[in-house]
């Protein structure tokens, strides 16, 4: 119990962010029309590509002799970039399609 309280206390800022973001995330897309479900999913998919920041950090601080970290980190950056770039481009193409329909 004490460990949990300490953990919350040390990370109280992050805990606030988590709670506020949960409410914000739910509030923001609450009234999305169903035609936009797939593009919104795709857009959200691109946004969680922000995980690439972690991959860049891990890659950048790997020591030159640590091949496990270098290779896995390299792979992580490639995959993260795929997620970000591919995600945004696909979303843009989906939305382009909507425009043409009108």
């Amino acid at each position: 119990m004490q460990a949990v309280i300490n953990f919350l206390h040390e990370n109280i800022e992050a805990v606030y962010i988590v709670i506020l973001m949960i409410f914000l995330g739910i509030e923001i897309i609450g009234r999305v029309p169903s035609v936009l479900h797939t593009p919104l999913m795709s857009g959200a998919n691109a946004i969680h590509g922000v995980v690439i920041i972690g991959a860049i950090i891990v890659m950048g601080k790997a020591e030159s002799g640590n091949y496990i970290a270098l290779i896995l980190g390299f792979l992580a950056v490639v995959l993260g970039t795929l997620n970000v770039v591919g995600g945004f481009v696909v979303t843009d193409r989906m939305l382009e399609m909507f425009k043409k329909k009108k």
């Binding site: 990370n11 992050a14 962010i17 988590v18 973001m21 949960i22 409410f23 914000l24 995330g25 739910i26 923001i28 897309i29 609450g30 999305v32 479900h37 919104l40 999913m41 959200a44 998919n45 946004i47 969680h48 922000v50 995980v51 920041i53 972690g54 950090i57």
Partner: peptide, 30 residues
């Protein structure tokens, strides 16, 4: 999204944390 937010906790990185949790919550509702 939640996995990305875990990375945010790990590096104390606010962009990863907000982006991750936002997608986690919005994605669940979606």
């Amino acid at each position: 999204g939640v996995a990305a937010a875990c990375g945010g906790f790990l590096y104390n990185n606010k962009a990863m944390l907000t982006g991750g949790i936002l997608v986690g919550a919005a994605g669940t509702l979606l």
